[in-house]
Design a binder for these strands. Structure first.
Length: 380
DNA sequence: AAGCCGGTAAACATCG
DNA sequence: CCGATGTTTACCGGCT
């Protein structure tokens, strides 16, 4: 048994003060002691300050964090996009180079960038392994597919056409499948309570139909289903990936795994909760009435949070292995439970779930972090 | 066996 | 009118 205490640094000065308990653990492996979270203000942005982590973790996270050079005030001033702009990257080998982000969507590689070979290089140098035939159907239900598609969109809402496109782009199976699956998608959207239709803003309406979003109250359930599916189907994949890590492989290239892994959006997506200011209600069903709140200087408040302590090692090996621990990528997850939303941060380069940090953030903190990540995920 | 869930097909209405 | 979109119903198979 080992107590681990990490002091995390908030992503930005826009995070407002949070003080509260942590009644929620993201996985059965974790035993979180309730406690207050207090983070010292730092100009270092999301993810957590390396200085408070182990040297190896700190080095890795710092060097792999594309946002580590960008403060939230940059974000507030709209300069983060410059920070993330390829034009701003003088050297392709620069640690802040975001080519990988462009190439892989909002996938955040786990390993230090300086240890990484650019994906284009790897993908061209690694002999292409025969991909799983396109006839192999993804294990994910249509609800999960829709969920992932919507979550992977910048605005967390998509027209059905874009949902089709996302599925086709991420799961080649549907590229050649007959059109019946589209009917299933529409059927699922209509029937499932998890999804909600939003009228498009008439003034800027382009295209047909409505936008679809995920009902926040059903997000945890959808995420859980997704995690279970991913966990179940990633077992064999992990066996493939683990030796590569042990042998010092520079980068685990999803593309050399089978088709599910290659296109696995769970490994790629940043599941970000819609900030509470954007959550749709029945009374206010359109974003045109309730536009997403941009960060404003009003949100710039100092944050103090205390370290989070939780138990490590109190986990039965029989318990379900969390897919996040083996995903090979830094993943940032929001959970919503009751009136709280929870942001799960990776606290270790290996992404062992025992070392994942859980922060409970208030709405403004989520918004701040979400905006940063939106920008990071929106540049590709 | 019954109920639930997910997938599929189909009919129909609406909309641009 | 046509195609895309959205809703609804029905049926089937797998799972618990």
């Amino acid at each position: 048994m080992e107590n681990i205490s990490h002091t995390l640094t908030p992503s930005s000065p826009c995070l407002s003060t949070f003080e509260g308990s942590l009644p929620f653990c993201s996985s059965p492996q974790q035993t979180c002691s309730e406690g207050r979270v207090s983070l010292p203000l730092s100009p270092i942005s999301f993810p957590p300050s390396p200085t408070s982590l182990s040297p190896a973790t700190a080095e890795s996270i710092h060097s792999s964090s594309p946002l580590s050079h960008c403060t939230a005030s940059h974000c507030l001033e709209g300069q983060l996009t410059q920070c993330l702009s390829p034009a701003n990257i003088s050297d392709q080998d620069d640690l802040t180079c975001l080519n990988w982000l462009h190439q892989r969507g909002n996938l955040l590689p786990l390993q230090s960038l300086h240890k990484m070979t650019p994906l284009t290089q790897i993908e061209s140098s690694v002999p292409p392994r025969p991909l799983r035939p396109a006839s192999s159907k993804p294990p994910y239900s249509f609800s999960s597919l829709i969920f992932m598609a919507i979550e992977d969109s910048p605005d967390r809402r998509l027209p059905v056409k874009d949902i089709y496109d996302w599925i086709v782009n991420n799961f080649p199976f549907y590229r050649t499948a007959s059109g019946g699956w589209r009917n299933s998608v529409r059927h699922n959207l209509s029937l499932s309570k998890s999804f909600r239709r939003i009228q498009r803003d008439k003034s800027q309406s382009v295209g047909k139909g409505s936008l679809w979003c995920v009902c926040p109250e059903y997000r945890p359930a959808l995420l859980e289903v997704l995690r279970k599916t991913h966990s179940y189907h990633s077992t064999n994949i992990n066996l493939l990936k683990k030796p590569a890590l042990l042998e010092g492989a520079e980068y685990v290239v999803p593309a050399v795994c089978d088709s599910i892994e290659m296109s696995d959006p769970l490994s790629q997506a940043l599941f970000l909760s819609t900030p509470s200011s954007q959550i749709l209600t029945n009374d206010n069903p359109t974003f045109s009435d309730n536009p997403p709140c941009p960060l404003t200087p009003d949100h710039e408040e100092l944050v103090t949070m205390e370290s989070v302590e939780y138990q490590q090692g109190e986990v039965s090996e029989d318990m379900e292995k969390d897919p996040l621990s083996d995903s090979g990528y830094i993943e940032l997850h929001y959970y919503q439970s009751h009136q709280y939303q929870y942001l799960v941060l990776p606290g270790d380069t290996e992404l062992d779930l025992e070392t994942v940090e859980i922060l409970q953030l208030d709405a403004e903190a989520q918004e701040a972090a979400g905006s940063l990540l939106d920008l990071a995920g929106g540049v590709y």
